[in-house]
């Protein structure tokens, strides 16, 4: 299902719970798929004693990937034109994350309809872990 310009308005929001009780195993799964084997994401002795963090933590790109899942579920496949985020807090095992898109503008660019969105992902304590923007090309 693909979102249409005619069915949205500024201020609309779409939210999705993108992970629940994030497991170390899912972080390892992401390491394997992405190729980023930084030990701070899976190796507790290294992370605690060498890197100096209390626990292994998720790749920022795993959180961005899960946030992207919310976006593509909202706007449709192959529709994104821009997606950019800042990583505002680390995500640790056990996290439950909710990603939200808010429509901030609807415009025409090169005779195509474009929706601009604010993007935010928060954990279940309300701490924002990702803050960003995205745009997508939509049919009328």
């Amino acid at each position: 299902m693909t979102l249409k310009i005619s069915t949205i308005k500024i201020g609309d929001t779409y939210s999705e719970k993108v992970c629940s009780n994030l497991s170390r195993t899912q972080i390892v799964q992401y390491a394997g798929a992405s190729g980023d084997f930084n030990p701070v994401h899976h190796d507790q002795p290294y992370t605690e004693h060498i890197a100096g963090y209390p626990s292994v933590f998720a790749h920022g790109m795993l959180t961005m990937g899960m946030t992207g899942k919310m976006l593509t579920n909202y706007v449709g496949d192959g529709r994104l034109t821009n997606f950019g985020v800042r990583f505002t807090a680390q995500v640790f095992p056990g996290a439950t994350l909710t990603a939200t898109a808010t429509v901030t503008n609807i415009r025409q660019e090169n005779s195509e309809g474009i929706v601009d969105m604010d993007v935010s992902t928060v954990d279940d304590n309300g701490v924002e872990v990702i803050n960003g923007k995205a745009s997508a090309r939509l049919d009328p």
């Binding site: 693909t2 190729g35 980023d36 990937g65 992207g68 899942k69 496949d77």
Partner: peptide, 26 residues
């Protein structure tokens, strides 16, 4: 579908690190 093929998720290109011979986090 619009693409007519299997497409990659928006952040998939990060996985190009598998194909970087010098990637230091592998």
């Amino acid at each position: 579908s619009e693409a007519g093929a299997i497409i990659a998720p928006p952040t998939f290109v990060e996985a190009s690190s598998h194909f970087d011979p010098d990637y230091f986090l592998r």
